[in-house]
Design a protein around this nucleic acid. Structure first.
Lengths: 244, 244
DNA sequence: GACGTTAAAAAATACCATTCATCATCTGTG
DNA sequence: CACAGATGATGAATGGTATTTTTTAACGTC
């Protein structure tokens, strides 16, 4: 049976890349505004200038569309971070960098972060997905930092690198949940300092500067220096203070 | 219009408490087996021996039913923990206890934990809910432990108690996600030791025993002792080791 | 410039949470 | 004991929404 209205239906053919990017842009908007469950395919189709059925030409279902959207965002993020990170030296600075950039991403894109945490990661097929690999690479930088720090004698050898990773990323997530729910705000720089210090003090050999122990160490080092000066053995130096 | 089948429909009246607990028990089963989205009201009704509509006499909607189920589980859990915790002494042991019992709950009831983390906590109305208050009380024990530890001179005064809370609970969650997704297993006791040690070393005044720094300290202390022996100034002692 | 092929549109379907009209059972009252 | 609300339970209806299928338009090719 022909359509009721006499008007011929409009068909607008476009190259598939264009269609896909239109749909993904619209989907990103809607997912960000409404969250996964309340996002309607109809709404996405409307904003992308297509009809519902067309979305299913390119994406198997709503969830695959979500995954592609988040993947795209995540890949972009990784590209931006990678080269900057390569320039950072010293375990405190490296940890601080990772924590800070992660917090900044959450602060800039709370809705997408939330989709990643709440919808993507808990899925049973997450392990084995491309996003799992991306995220793995992303968090693994911290594992490498800790390993390098231990090898360099900067960090406690008993500290499990993967546990440190979970400590840091878990802490960040827990502390930003209220923000992700839309309650209040936070300062990434300030929070990054606090987290890095707390974790690093758990990792650093000996005590941290500014602790009551400092004066003791200083006194002991001075004493040792005087003593060792007479035997020719070099004395250990505490790391210098870090930049803010 | 009367029902097609001639058989009169069976009606089974029960006291409301019984109905409610039947429905909640069935709902718990189904939510645990299927997760929130894939749990069907029809299935819950069937197992509870009622019809779909009856569920809506007692619960406004599917989500409220979920909340009630998780609430019930959480309250039970709190009751069991509370008195045991009161007997634990010392910051290391107290943190260890909190970490261990939390890990044990996750290990025993992964599906319910997951519902709490994934479905309940991210909801926009979570703050203000009863579960929010329960969870607040639950995690606040750790804040109190840290505060007390600082007051007693056991823990670093710079450590923010609430940040330590997020560090610990965030770390636990991150580290148990794979398990919650149904991948692999973990040993609560072992993991509790690892987490507690890592966090505690970040909190303790001074350095811990057994670190490579120990020999340095020992050497320095010995050097200082020799040096100070000639001036009459007393040398500082490092704190004694903590229980395992 | 017909014709097969493919993209897009539109309608149809299927699945569920939620609501509703109807009926059964209970309780109290004369 | 009969009867009239009142209340609880039922099963069917509704509505919203992802997904599938059918229909139609545009494109490329010979």
């Amino acid at each position: 049976m022909p359509p009721r209205s006499a008007a011929k239906r409009q068909v607008n053919r476009l190259p598939p890349e264009r269609r896909i990017s239109d749909i993904m842009a619209a989907a990103k908007e809607v997912f960000v505004e409404k969250g996964y469950n309340d996002a309607l395919i109809t709404d996405i189709a409307l904003r992308a200038g297509v009809v519902e059925g067309s979305i299913y030409r390119f994406f198997a279902n709503k969830r695959e569309l979500l995954v592609k959207v988040v993947e795209h965002w995540f890949e972009e993020m990784l590209r931006d971070d990678a080269e900057q990170f390569a320039a950072v030296r010293g375990s405190w600075n490296q940890i601080r960098f990772i924590v800070y950039t992660h917090l900044t991403s959450i602060h800039r894109d709370p809705a997408l972060s939330r989709l990643m945490f709440q919808e993507i990661r808990p899925a049973p097929d997450y392990r084995g997905s491309h996003l799992f690999e991306l995220n793995r690479a992303y968090t693994h930088r911290l594992v490498d930092v800790v390993k390098a720090g231990i090898a360099a004698g900067e960090l406690r050898p008993e500290a499990s690198p993967s546990l440190v990773r979970d400590l840091v990323f878990g802490c960040i997530e827990h502390r930003t949940w209220a923000f992700l729910r839309g309650e209040g705000n936070f300062d990434p720089a300030e929070m990054a300092d606090a987290i890095t210090n707390l974790v690093h003090h758990g990792l650093m050999l000996g005590s941290e500067p500014n602790s009551p122990m400092e004066s003791v160490i200083t006194r002991l080092e001075a004493a040792a220096a005087r003593l060792e000066a007479t035997t020719g053995i070099a004395s250990a130096k505490t790391p210098s203070s870090f930049p803010r």
